[in-house]
Computed example of a mutant assay.
Amino acid sequence: MLLELIQGTEGGGLIIIQDSIHYSGRTLLMSFIKAALKRDEVVHLLAFELHEEELKHELGHSCLQRLKFHNAFHDPLGWNENPPFTVHQFITSELDSLLTSNQHSKPVTLVIDSFSFILRHLSPSAVCKTLQQLKKGGAVKTTLGLLHSDMHHRNMVGSICHLATSVLTVAPGHQCHEAVAKTIRRAKSGKISQAVERFSISDDMTVKVQSKPVPVGSGQGEAGDAEVDPTANLTFNLRLSDQERQAKEKLALPFVFSKEKKSALLRPVPGSGRILYEPDANDDYDQEDPDDDLDI
Score class of each variant (00 low, 15 high):
77 L>V: 10
19 D>N: 08
78 G>C: 00
119 L>T: 08
238 L>W: 02
162 H>A: 14
191 K>D: 15
145 G>D: 01
2 L>M: 12
41 E>I: 01
126 A>I: 11
242 D>I: 04
65 Q>L: 14
35 A>D: 11
209 V>W: 02
37 L>D: 05
61 H>S: 15
160 I>K: 04
227 E>W: 09
260 E>G: 01
64 L>E: 04
40 D>T: 03
26 R>I: 13
156 M>T: 15
199 F>Y: 15
179 A>N: 02
37 L>Y: 07
53 E>Q: 15
105 S>G: 15
13 G>C: 08
43 V>D: 06
181 A>K: 04
276 L>N: 13
145 G>V: 04
164 A>E: 05
231 T>L: 12
247 A>C: 05
150 D>A: 01
216 V>W: 07
13 G>N: 06
82 N>F: 13
161 C>F: 06
15 I>D: 04
198 R>D: 00
43 V>L: 09
81 E>C: 00
130 T>E: 06
277 Y>F: 15
272 S>N: 10
60 G>L: 04
163 L>E: 09
37 L>N: 01
265 L>W: 07
141 K>W: 10
154 R>Y: 09
247 A>F: 02
78 G>M: 00
86 T>G: 01
39 R>H: 05
295 D>N: 12
83 P>E: 10
117 F>P: 01
55 L>S: 06
33 I>K: 06
59 L>F: 07
135 K>L: 15
180 V>N: 00
227 E>M: 11
146 L>A: 08
246 Q>K: 10
223 A>H: 02
171 A>H: 08
294 L>E: 15
289 D>T: 11
90 F>E: 02
290 P>T: 01
69 F>K: 04
182 K>D: 05
161 C>T: 15
128 C>M: 14
279 P>I: 08
282 N>G: 02
28 L>H: 03
50 L>V: 12
167 V>P: 01
146 L>T: 03
114 S>M: 05
129 K>D: 14
120 R>L: 14
236 F>E: 04
227 E>D: 10
153 H>V: 08
45 L>F: 09
214 V>G: 04
129 K>T: 15
104 H>A: 12
5 L>F: 03
109 T>C: 10
36 A>W: 06
203 D>A: 14
55 L>F: 01
196 V>N: 00
224 G>T: 04
128 C>E: 14
293 D>A: 10
59 L>C: 05
132 Q>V: 00
210 Q>R: 13
218 S>F: 10
209 V>E: 11
168 L>D: 01
87 V>P: 01
141 K>T: 03
235 T>V: 09
21 I>C: 00
125 S>N: 12
166 S>Y: 14
145 G>P: 03
244 E>T: 04
3 L>T: 08
